[in-house]
Amino acid sequence: MNVVNTALVLEDTPLLSVSGLTRSYGARIGCKDVVFDLYPGEVMGIVGESGSGKSTLLSCLAGHLETDAGQVVYQGQDVLTLPEPARRRLMRTDWAFVHQHARDGLRMNVSAGGNVGERLMAGGARHYGNIRKTAEDWLERVEIDPGRIDDRPSAFSGGMQQRLQIARGLVTGPKLVLMDEPTGGLDVSVQARLLDLLRGLVRRMGLSVVIVTHDIGVVRLLADRLMVMRHGQVVEQGLTDRVLDDPQHAYTQLLVNSVLPT
């Protein structure tokens, strides 16, 4: 009698399982006891005001910051205890990081093609023609004219630089992408283009994404789930639209109500 609801048969192993993640700066809490699971193909947003610990959390996940306590289990392995070579290999193959400022994630004195090709070459690609072809393909995918493959990122606009940074990270077909305010500092129209692009890439590549932002509009359009942070702790998490439309925590209500109407 029951309809078999295939959409509800879900992969039940998380791609990433974070528990008890804690990082302090002396007496001040960076983030404390953060717990969450991220499943394949899921996009999780983290919002909170400056100093809420969202960036600290992301930096800990990415290994840019040392963690005081907790686990970050990726495909059954705690990446925090991985030997450094293995961790760095993971970061340049299976994971990608998108910085708020493209110049932090790009090599500004290297051509667009070289930027996109770097992870391939780091992985042992030794055929110039193939590397270049892959780079061209990726420039096209992020809507950059492949004819500009030999231009340096410094000749690109802010939005193009950001798209190039995304191509550089996604070229190895990662499973997990960590993004720190990827649309911050871009014009509204450029933001929209980037959001659309990200949505398409997430869908086509089945990416799992953790995206940190203070822009509620961005998470509403991009994130399946949302985590609200304050003073280093997660105060509320759940389905993005439920957290935003029916916020339970006092702080979330304040945050949602502080958004200027568009």
Partner: peptide, 30 residues
């Protein structure tokens, strides 16, 4: 390509030499 001494030392330690080929790639591209 990498101005930071701390980073280049780490790259040698971990045999991360992808960057060397980026330099050669740039040569051929240009």
């Amino acid at each position: 390509l990498e101005p930071r001494e701390t980073e280049t030392r780490r790259m040698h330690a971990l045999e991360e030499y992808g960057l060397m080929h980026v330099k050669l790639y740039e040569d051929i591209a240009r």
